[in-house]
Amino acid sequence: MPVATENLSQILYRDMLLIRRTEEKILELFSAGKVGGTTHTCIGQEANAVALVGQLDRQRDFVVSNHRCHGHYLAYGGPLDGLLGEILGTANGVCGGRGGSQHIKYDRFQSNGVLGGGIPIACGMAMGEKLKGGDGITVVSIGDGALGEGTLYESLNMAALWDLPILFLVENNRYAQSTPLHLGVAGSIVDRARPFGIRADEIDTTDVEELLVWSSRAIEAVRLERKPHWAVMHTYRFSAHSKGDDTRDEDEVRAYQEKDPLRIQSARLNAEQLDEAEAWVRDVLGRALAACDAAGEAMKL
């Protein structure tokens, strides 16, 4: 195992690579007709998940994610074969194939495909932690699309009123499905939380190491002050909203691909380290897929 000798830069790269290769595999399986339904990948946004969710303490922190949840799930530490099995509909799926790509629960992590629905639930989880006197925090992750949902503003109000230990992770990938930001979001994203008295911060980078430091401050602020925090990451997804539904300008997508978080991070690694990471991911992914094959179809209801 290479893990023991890895440095932080390698670990961050390897964790992002695992998400990237997993989602590429998922899209491949869809294209090959091996999976039905739909899926939403976070290709291009991996640094956000690894930098923020990857730093949480699985023993005490909670994550409420959304339809684009694979990266958050893997960064949280959810088992890979459970995710692939869930999407493939095999018996080892983390939810037995019932939830599929968008509806996953593992330990203190959960996701749901209805935008905005999870935000007040995350507030309730944060309130529960507060009432129990615990020091866990709840991270609720939303995108720019969910900025149109009323429950978000109701939840910001509640979070501020009751000093809930909740971190709003806002990944602005500049498109809500096919709708560009300027057609769906008025005003400032970062300023949305401020009139509630909630501390807000934003960052516009795909560099996982910058995001790591920034996220660490956000997490510690919520953990220590027991107050909400609004953390906006300006990002971009390289893949379609779900599968083939991409109407964005190709030049625009290419321009953002210059800032691929994997490319940025790979510059910090030597060729051997990069090969090592690829080999590790290939091995882990291969074993997870084999586990799905071995598990067979999801159980009969």
Binding site: G118, P120, I121, A126, G128, S155
Partner: peptide, 11 residues
Amino acid sequence: ASIVGLGTGLA
């Protein structure tokens, strides 16, 4: 909507 969500999170 959100107070029912709050209750669900507490549950």
